[in-house]
Design a protein around this nucleic acid. Structure first.
Lengths: 221, 221
DNA sequence: AATGCAGAAATTATCTATAATTTCAACCAG
DNA sequence: CTGGTTGAAATTATAGATAATTTCTGCATT
């Protein structure tokens, strides 16, 4: 999937983003340009450019002369991202609604079913993101959509951090309610449900390294 | 103002951002890394990193192997930014309101007065931005605030493109209404006014290069 | 044991050089 | 004239080398 027409810097940033989101690189850990460069068999110049992209997406933070590290996050940031998504996805849906076709809504329903059948977080997340993208894309607002995309990446990171291995299949009633409202042309009701849906924050006890359990939080919509 | 502790790449990106926003570089024109490097007396490596930053802010767009150009914009994008600002600034204000002190509101009132007295776009824009930042910053949501900052940069660009030289002094009633509502603890009313305020799009006839007049649009709040 | 301080090692930031690609203009064929 | 082709010039993307800064490590001191 990594398009060979992409520049090396883009390929590296995509790969690193994927690792950060999936949690295979720990929050707070340092990203060393020479190590990354060696791994990808390149010089460090494209690596530095990849770091700037990650920084812009909020996945890494860089301090001058002290390097780049994977962004840490806490409950506050989970909430912040949830609220931003609620505000922006509602906005996007209001503009997308007039352009939604039955075909798109059918596709979105397929995505919902795929999500309900998912037996692991990763495929659930993918189905969920597909659903949201399908119903929002027709708003035709590129800047808004790309901001929402970055927020989805952050959401996925929170989700994987909390539900890394265990995942319970669950059926998504919100998605169905949104689709049904959209089919009836009731945009406001769909938007209201979407806003609530995205702000719902799941909670789950998780074992820490020291053997204790603490609560982990994630956006589950 | 350009901190010497900043990296060269950051200094370059700030300077270029300023030029793009002020309109001293035309939308659509190419940014050539060697030329910029020569002007700043550096090599092109930090220039490339600066380009990535501009790209992330939406001020430039880059196509692989074909270089970077200053982002063009149209009425659609002005509207898009206005709506995003409305959604996000309202969200920020709701969270900031409980933390607003009389001292902050007094400062914001000073900024409003400074805006009303401004005899040129540039100082009006600065006062306006100060006002918005003052009342939103206490929300304590860094990601939200930085997204809003990028949107303000885009707004300023639209504004300068439309009102480059001429500017009529005007008193900002909305700002006063927002402050008065906040002083009375009426957050919802303040938020509603802010949402409307930011979505108001000014219109002005402007002479094109070919001598004709067309309408230019900008967010004026 | 804790603290502080070299000096060494690692790392970042930048520069110079090279390879690969695109752009552009001149030219030629239809 | 139009449209395409070719080669030179310009430009981007990457690599390899260097300077500057930070971090680490071990040892001495309290």
């Amino acid at each position: 999937m990594a398009n060979t027409e992409d520049t090396i810097a883009v390929r590296i940033s995509k790969e690193l983003a994927d690792r950060i989101i999936s949690g295979s690189i720990e929050p707070g850990s340092r990203l060393r340009q020479d190590h990354v460069a060696e791994e990808f068999g390149t010089s460090h110049v494209p690596v530095r450019e990849a770091f700037r992209r990650l920084e812009a997406q909020g996945l890494a933070i860089s301090e001058p002369r002290r390097g780049v590290r994977v962004a840490a996050f806490d409950l506050g940031e989970v909430r912040e991202v949830a609220e931003m998504r609620a505000a922006l996805e509602v906005l996007a849906l209001r503009h997308a609604a007039p352009h939604l076709t039955p075909a798109i809504l059918d596709e979105a329903e397929e995505a919902t079913k795929a999500g309900d059948k998912s037996r692991d977080v990763r495929s659930w997340e993918e189905a969920n993101r597909t659903f949201h993208r399908l119903i929002l894309a027709p708003c035709n607002m590129p800047r808004l959509l790309s901001t929402i995309d970055d927020l989805h990446a952050a959401s996925a990171r929170f989700l994987f951090a909390a539900w890394r291995s265990e995942w319970e299949t669950r059926t998504d009633q919100d998605h169905r309610a949104i689709l049904s409202a959209l089919r009836q042309g009731n945009t406001e009701s769909a938007a209201a449900t979407l806003g609530r849906h995205v702000q719902w924050i799941g909670q789950k006890p998780v074992k820490t390294a020291s053997g204790k359990t603490r609560d982990a939080f994630a956006i589950v919509g």
